[in-house]
Design a protein around this nucleic acid. Structure first.
Lengths: 349, 349
DNA sequence: TGTCACTTGTGTCACGATACACAGGAGAGG
DNA sequence: CCTCTCCTGTGTATCGTGACACAAGTGACA
């Protein structure tokens, strides 16, 4: 892009108003620093020349700040608007940004050069959606020395961190889903970037590169071992993405096949909704023939009567953003709770 | 914020690698322009010094571009993540941004200085969510001479525009909602910025500063006049915001009062959902005692069985973004359709 | 051997704004 | 009348990069 030839600069305005460039700058940025009459003259000259205010790029260069927070989702950018959980998190981030008068910039990671987005981002801080272990994007963020925070891990030195206790909650929700079941199924988030769909039997949670997946899976295993359910007998359907459509397809196939599952612990509400739809389409009654649990507690879960782990990603987004902007802020341990609704069988006493 | 003292520049890397600054620049931006061996040496020196790549602010200043599109919603920023329609629009915008390798920056408008966000935004283009007539933000965008586009109007010289035919659809959906009704109610989006909730009787559509509101209301009046329903007898509840909660409260109150409505034409799905919830809470059966229509055709409308005007804000977001980036692109007239589901009484023949 | 095209590296300087330190003047107070 | 403080305006240097135009080297080919 060629520089427009008719770009007006602060210097031209200064000449027109017969003041120094600094006075023009002050007229825009520190109105109290300039006499009212002078300021009026400056603004009038600016209007006459068509000057629309200080150039943001030049200002950012000079000041070394942008007034913007970058959010990296490492998913197609549209994930920000499609996924319920990401949506709540971003709403929390946005609420702080409004208070602090910061913009919020959604950054896409491109497969061919995932690091570029980090090194070339015009932002004062990074917020990351959960990333796999040893991820180049996260490493680039650390290397950039820009303040950063991450939701869901991995825990990283120099990066603020917030995440609920996925393992403990995993134990609790697995009990709600699996108690009394004969053919339990875990509907799992991806293990690593570029995940292919897979059906595993009692996999090692350590195989999952995403801490969130790993911990939720470990919680499930904890409960199974404690309840005498052989972990090997538990099937784990790992999906390529956190998507209702994909969950629907997978669960639908399993319900039609032999040894149809009669209990599903899904690692997100999104996946649970897919499972619910599959059950409806297959004429499988919930919770009588099939119990289903979700995770995150979106508003849609309330409406659908989904038993789920509730947490406030909104609050976590807020807390994380605050902490990144001011490292002296302490992030509270996120609260969570199992909410039993109508997609699981009543608790035995 | 103080400039970090340890910022490494391209010049330092050049010295370390014993090449000129331009060679370093090329090594990062035009790898083909530099011998492989030289490039390797440069990158190695950069790594040694902790150089993380060209400074985005300096680059933007030099190149006169940012690689980012700004989206102005003129609502609290969180609206982007709370509202179904805004969400779909943004998803469409984002999909183009991914293809074009652009970032997407969500800008907040502050009441005390609405224009600042426009004059200080580090973006190459603006996309606006529907704005009222004669709005300072829109005027500032025009004045800034940055390419821009607006969804829903007002039509403005120099600003790309996309919007479905709200008036025509208003006629159709009003018929679906009101046919055979005795006490019709329009659940309206705000008339202007800072709207206070109000209950009007057959207001002049021209009173609405938002073109979308104005046209949908005009469509409703068109049908009423044609069907012999006195416009004065039609109540119009104008809400302060496009919010389920507020619609719920308003409709709930009206259902409890005298002359409870038996037909509601809501100007958004969001409002229609609020009305649905109110009906459920009040024990009013839909559609027998109360017919309800929405607008926009979100996925949730399908699930809830809501009769609504379907349009693809995703496609409109895509088309508008494309057109802003390349003015030779022609924006097609958006398609729309009335989808009859279970919240309206079957059509008479 | 001469010509030509291609590849690779270089030096300079403007992009537009603001931090900083300082200067002159006006008024207050003793 | 002198000093001191506050208010308002100024000059300059610098932020880090990449456009541009050019130079030097290499090898192909007639």
């Amino acid at each position: 892009m060629k520089t427009p030839p008719n770009r007006v600069t602060i210097a031209q305005v200064a000449r027109e108003a017969q003041v120094s460039p600094m006075t023009v700058s002050y007229a825009y940025n520190r109105p109290d620093r300039v006499a009212a009459a002078t300021r009026a003259r400056v603004l009038e000259s600016a209007a006459r020349l068509g000057y629309t205010g200080p150039n943001p790029a030049a200002r950012s260069l000079r000041q070394g700040r942008f007034g913007t927070i970058g959010v990296v989702l490492s998913e197609p950018l549209t994930y920000a608007f499609d996924d319920l959980a990401a949506n709540r998190f971003l709403a929390g981030v946005a609420s702080v940004c409004v208070e602090e008068r910061l913009g919020i910039s959604l950054l896409s990671v491109f497969d061919d050069n995932p690091v570029q987005v980090v090194t070339s981002a015009a932002v004062d801080a990074f917020l990351l959606w959960t990333q796999p272990d040893n991820d180049p994007v996260l490493e680039a963020v650390v290397a950039s020395a820009v303040p950063a925070g991450i939701l869901g891990g991995p825990r990283t030195a120099g990066v603020q961190f917030v995440s609920m206790d996925d393992r403990a909650a995993g134990r609790v929700v697995t009990e709600a889903a699996f108690a009394g079941a004969g053919s339990p199924l875990v509907l799992s988030l991806p293990f690593h970037r570029g995940q292919q769909p897979a059906l595993l039997h009692g996999p090692d949670p350590g195989d999952a590169a995403y801490p969130v997946t790993r911990n939720r899976l470990a919680g499930a295993r904890d409960w199974c071992l404690g309840a005498g359910v052989p972990w090997d007998s538990v099937r784990v359907a790992v999906l390529a993405r956190n998507s209702q459509v994909e969950a629907l397809r997978t669960v639908s196939g399993l319900l039609a096949g032999p040894a149809a599952p009669d209990a599903i612990m899904a690692m997100s509400d999104e996946l649970a909704f897919g499972a619910l739809t599959a059950a409806r389409e297959r004429g499988v009654s919930v919770p009588d023939q099939l119990s289903i649990t979700g995770w995150d507690g979106s508003g849609a879960a309330t409406v659908a009567g989904l038993t789920t782990i509730e947490q406030s990603l909104y609050d976590q987004g807020r807390a994380l953003t605050r902490a990144v902007l001011d490292p002296s802020v302490v992030i509270p341990e996120p609260e969570w709770a199992l909410v039993r609704r109508s997609t699981t069988r009543p608790q035995r006493r």
